[in-house]
Design a protein around this nucleic acid. Structure first.
Lengths: 337, 337
DNA sequence: CTATTCCTCCAAAACGTTTCGGATCGCTTT
DNA sequence: AAAGCGATCCGAAACGTTTTGGAGGAATAG
């Protein structure tokens, strides 16, 4: 493995000069610079990032902390697409990404700060962390820069990216209203999830503006799970046959709701219209294809990485990035012409 | 940021002793060790892996090199599940994983070896690389240990993990044969892909053993793409209405074939049976749910990481790992009872 | 009593880089 | 001729760790 020292010897200059030549400093003669670069190429030199990181005290590496990276999480491709987006930006600006996946067991033994410091990441992106996760508290206290996805915390060292969940939900509800639905139920996620709260708010606003009474009993929690949503929808449909439409806070839950409707022999969308949220892959492959509010998850990852690295380099104007959503109308709300 | 030196000062010992105490060497008194550990905890010490890596000349980091990590690749969750598997093992043995995604443009500017050496990874796992990828040549020549997924190259420093594709394909074909099908078409991937070749071999063997003539015209290439497969199947079905079953070398292509059958008004599975390969998420959500040969992609990642790290630590018995596949019978081949 | 062994500890070198604070030399200015 | 200056180079320290080769002393063996 050739080092800067080998190059220095071969070129007959000091290691200082080699370093400065390779890093584009101005106090080295252009001729010797060319010579050094030439020799470096010949010797197949590649810099040792460990040594560099050690002395510069930064690694040009960011950590992506996701929780529960398991086989199961492949269903909603959320994590994966965010990861792809992060990876994209990171490689554009010549940083590295290392993946930390936290499990409840591992969380006890190592704290967030320890994790980041030990791996010497310059900053971190957190995705899929619950609001009640013990890591979250640490994050805000720690001095390691980080950006959160879908959790609105902002400080000197922490920023976040999210989508406009209120508007997204509103668009979904307005779509149903425009189709003439007046008895609309909502299957939400968790009580304490930020996005759930926002999506409910948007839903309520839409109904309010349309002058429609919001029946609190028709708003249930599906815990973002397909099966739970199915059970809840089944119960709701049996108890309140007047319901004609469902707004679900995730596509996975919407799939559950569709299953419930099918079980009761209700036709979609003629008797029951269903709209989801996220636009996961499965949505467009479901029968009927699922209408949904699309979030650009790739962009979320991309923007998160961008924000973080701008923060690291001290040129972030704002610590917040809010992305748009898009209403995708498919056949679960309106019959194909 | 506290260092080993701070601890040494606080404990009144040398930095050597601190290092040896923390690393579990036997030549330090148990009492002083406890004291050192206590102080380390108090000072919130975490070791600097850069410094450690520099002197030990290894980083306890492996690279995962995937090609084309884009939004689109989310459809077949192959990459993602492999990644999750790699991540799982890696975190079990306290290594790190850094993700390199290669694009055709980036490939020119940096070679595989440069990538690995610069990031100081101890070894790499390559997934989704084509057999004609320029990286591949480099890999075998380079001295950096690596393991390949689904590409059978073996040497002092390279190993691979794959599934038994011949047997898998055979099981699929035998399933169709057992259902009474005698006119079976196959939609394969690329001509030059290792897995395609193997799966075709298994398919042929099954027919041969059943004493059935293999009609070469019924074997087409779908390039692992849904649309291409749909077009090919459409053509095939129109030209050869006697075909009653399809074996596809990937689920995505099987979905395309199902679309083609539906377009021609053929009922699945009564008139056309379809079986895929991979068991992607979409398979079980398709209508009808798709029968397939399941590959445990998570396990592939897990085993690849395990193999690589065993190689790194000089305790790999074999450089090859071949995993089993599983026939999943769903409704695209046999009507629900 | 001397020689040997064991236990516990330590000083210093090494890993490959960046960077601070000059040093040298030739040229221009006064 | 002295002083100043710009261009080009370099020595040495620093980053935080591991490891080598012992040192010192107490206990044991002969």
């Amino acid at each position: 493995m050739t080092t800067i020292k080998d190059i220095a010897k071969a070129a007959g200059v000091s290691i200082t000069t080699v370093s400065r030549a390779l890093n584009g400093y101005s106090d080295v003669n252009e001729k010797t610079r060319q010579k050094i670069i030439e020799i470096a190429k010949q010797l197949n030199y590649s810099p040792n990032t460990l040594a560099r990181g050690l002395v510069m005290n930064k690694s040009k590496t960011i950590g992506l902390l996701v929780s529960g990276l398991t086989r199961e999480s492949a269903k909603d491709n959320f994590t994966f697409e965010v990861l792809a987006g992060v990876n994209q930006y990171v490689s554009e600006v010549d940083y590295d990404m290392v993946l930390f996946s936290t499990t409840s067991t591992k969380q006890r033994e190592k704290t967030y700060t320890q994790l980041c410091r030990e791996r010497r990441v310059d900053g971190a992106i957190l995705q899929g962390i619950r609001v009640d996760d013990p890591y979250l508290q640490e994050v805000v206290e720690s001095d390691i820069p980080c950006v959160l996805i879908d959790i609105p915390i902002k400080s000197e060292t922490v920023g976040y990216v999210t989508t406009d969940n209120v508007l997204g939900a509103k668009k979904a509800a307005q779509h149903l209203l425009a189709l003439g639905h007046r008895h609309i139920a909502m299957v939400n996620g968790y009580e304490y999830a930020f996005v759930s709260e926002q999506r409910f708010k948007g839903f309520r606003e839409a109904l309010l503006e349309a002058g429609i009474f919001l029946n609190e009993q028709w708003v249930v929690n599906g815990a973002f799970q397909e099966e739970k949503a199915e059970r809840e929808a089944l119960r709701l449909l049996q108890q309140h046959p007047e319901i004609t439409a469902f707004f679900c806070a995730s596509d996975l839950m919407a799939l559950g709701v569709m299953k419930a409707a099918k079980k009761l022999g209700k036709r979609i969308p003629e008797e029951i219209a269903v709209i989801g949220y996220d636009d996961i892959i499965l949505a467009s492959y479901a029968t009927p294809p699922l209408s949904t509010i699309a979030q650009n998850k790739f962009a979320m990852g991309y923007e998160a990485a961008k924000l973080l690295i701008e923060m690291l380099e001290g040129k972030a104007h704002s610590h917040v990035k809010i992305l748009e959503t898009e209403l995708k109308i498919r056949e679960s709300t309106v019959k194909n012409q």
